[in-house]
């Protein structure tokens, strides 16, 4: 079976039209023309949009998770409805609703241009996903922890903040990393909001160069840029995870 796989790979390498690939995906002139803007504008904006959306999303997700676990029924209803709605809608549609729907309906638009609208639009979606992750994390902390904390005289709020949440977040580092990486790639949807030369993120940046040059090379360049962002990030999180694991012992 491995032999066959090797054969398939060898055949692909042999039959591939390398000249064609080089011309369409690795045009050196175009690669050169994209620097430094692909970093100073494209990558920079992708990172800023992601960071802001993630920050907004996680705060909002924590609130939603606590509402979902609340003993007050209307809180639970709200959180459930919110999560089902924004987890069910494509992110692109949510972004359009935030960017164009709000001003159409209320004559008021979120300030801050693409950054404001994009971060809030993506944050709304990310919060729905992360709320479920955080809820699962809280529920994964043994019940006895809360009972012990309460029996020491802590209020339930204090126990949640100092005993339960730190343990819960340790548990959910891997799924939260997943969400962060997804979010990095979802920033490519922000093109629908329109962009100024200074507000383009990586994918939009590539597509604009692509349209000007009629060549696919920009896609290769930003594909590498995305990996340069995500790989160190996931490496960092793995280290963090190992550290958390070691501390537990």
């Amino acid at each position: 079976m491995y032999g066959l796989l090797g054969l398939v790979v060898a055949a692909m390498v042999f039959f591939a039209d390398w000249e064609q690939i080089r011309k369409s995906f690795f045009n050196v002139e175009i690669i050169k023309s994209m620097f430094p803007e692909v970093v100073t504008v494209g990558a920079r904006n992708t990172i800023i949009y992601t960071a802001l959306a993630f920050a907004l999303g996680i705060v909002w997700a924590l609130g939603l998770a606590l509402m979902k676990l609340s003993s007050v029924a209307p809180y639970r209803w709200f959180a459930t409805a919110y999560i089902e709605l924004f987890r069910g809608l494509p992110a692109l549609i949510t972004i359009i609703l935030v960017g164009f729907g709000l001003p159409l309906a209320f004559g008021w638009s979120i300030p801050g241009g693409t950054l404001g609208k994009g971060a809030i639009g993506l944050g709304i979606v990310a919060a729905a996903y992360m709320a479920e992750t955080i809820r699962a994390g809280i529920q994964a902390v043994p019940r006895g922890q809360m009972e012990a904390a309460r029996s020491l005289g802590m209020s339930s709020g204090t126990a949640m903040t100092y005993i339960i949440l730190p343990q819960a977040f340790r548990i959910i580092i891997p799924p939260l990393t997943n969400e962060l990486v997804l979010l990095i790639k979802d920033t490519s949807l922000l093109f629908v909001l329109g962009s100024t030369p200074q507000s383009k993120e990586l994918t939009k940046f590539a597509r604009d160069v692509m349209a000007a040059k009629v060549n696919a090379t920009p896609l290769t360049v930003v594909a590498v840029m995305y990996l340069l962002i995500t790989l160190p990030l996931t490496y960092l999180v793995r280290k963090l995870e190992r550290k958390a694991e070691a501390e537990k012992r």
Binding site: I96, G99, F100, G101, P103, L104, G107, S109, G194
Partner: peptide, 8 residues
């Protein structure tokens, strides 16, 4: 859409 929304 942006025109109708007053974004441009």
């Amino acid at each position: 859409t942006a025109l109708a929304a007053g974004e441009v």
